[in-house]
Amino acid sequence: MSIHSDTSLGHVRLRVSNLEQSIQFYKEVIGFPIAQIEGKVAYLKVEEEKTLLVLEEIPNAARLPERSAAGLYHVAILLPDRPSLASILYHFADKHIQIGQADHLVSEALYLADPDGNGLEIYRDRDRSEWELEQNGDYKMASDPINIESLIQEAEEHSWKGLPQGTVIGHVHMHVSDLDETEAFYRDIIGFETVGDYRAMRAKFMAAGRYHHHLGFNIWAGKGVPPTPETAVGMSYFTVKLVDNEEREKLLERLQKANYPFKEESSIIWVVDPAGMNVRFE
């Protein structure tokens, strides 16, 4: 049974070592206009009612060597259109921010990391009519160079005013310990569909509603790696937004049928996936 096609991602909670430093980065570099602070936790928003990222300062937070554990590879922030991506590209240039970039055919993406090394992708989607399929039904994707000249023509120079209305969390990409085990969990119990089985890349992409991916998994940190400990910087959890109570009941039924452990907290369902990552269903 598949999860509802309108399922989307909600906020992601990240562990950081210095909240003040992180807030400054996410406001001045990434462009979140709203940061509500409660003690050692900050709630980052573009629109007042919608939290996209939660930052929590962890005392004496460790920073693990790159690609040494299962956990966050990057959180992907989806912009509403190409001019918005062009605008933030100008902004990164003005700020002398080092970035990576790629044309994935279904999208165009910019890459960077926060002060603690938490990976970030800032991207825009091409129209679905432009997405192509491989013969096996996977979406055709690549990591080609972006046509920068074409992109920068989409925005006025130095026109950046922060993240625009309509910005959302588009997907989360994670290092996992076992691709097949992770895929089976998210497919057979949670209900996501595999839309990209990129074995040559040692990665799989999964989604609801035939999106190019809400979830990305790779074993680039090595098969069998342990989870990132809660004492280290990284991702505490990501959120899957269920469309209604009927979908919630269906998920509970699948979890119970599979005898998979979960916790209920009011209307929230908490699950730890096979790689040790916390998933929040709301």
Rank of each mutant, 00 (worst) to 15 (best):
H11R: 04
V12Q: 06
V12E: 02
V12P: 01
R15Q: 09
Q21L: 05
S22D: 13
I23Q: 06
I23P: 08
Q24R: 14
Q24D: 15
E28Q: 14
E28R: 12
I30D: 07
P33C: 05
I34M: 09
A35Q: 03
A35S: 15
E38G: 00
K40L: 01
V41S: 07
V41C: 11
Y43F: 15
K45S: 15
E49D: 11
K50E: 12
K50V: 01
L52C: 05
V54Q: 14
V54S: 02
E56M: 00
E56Q: 14
P59G: 07
A62R: 07
A62H: 02
A62L: 12
E66Q: 10
S68W: 04
A70V: 10
L72T: 00
Y73I: 01
Y73N: 15
H74T: 05
A76D: 03
L78N: 01
L79E: 04
P80K: 13
P80C: 14
D81F: 04
R82F: 09
P83R: 10
P83V: 10
P83C: 11
S84P: 02
Y90S: 13
K95I: 05
H96C: 11
I99E: 12
I99V: 15
G100Y: 11
Q101Y: 12
D103R: 07
H104T: 05
L105R: 11
L105Y: 13
S107A: 15
S107M: 01
L110H: 13
L110V: 14
L110K: 11
L112A: 13
L112R: 06
D116P: 10
N118Q: 00
G119T: 04
E121G: 14
I122C: 09
I122T: 06
Y123P: 02
R124A: 14
R124T: 14
R126Q: 13
R126W: 02
D127S: 13
D127K: 07
R128K: 15
E130Q: 13
E130F: 01
E132V: 09
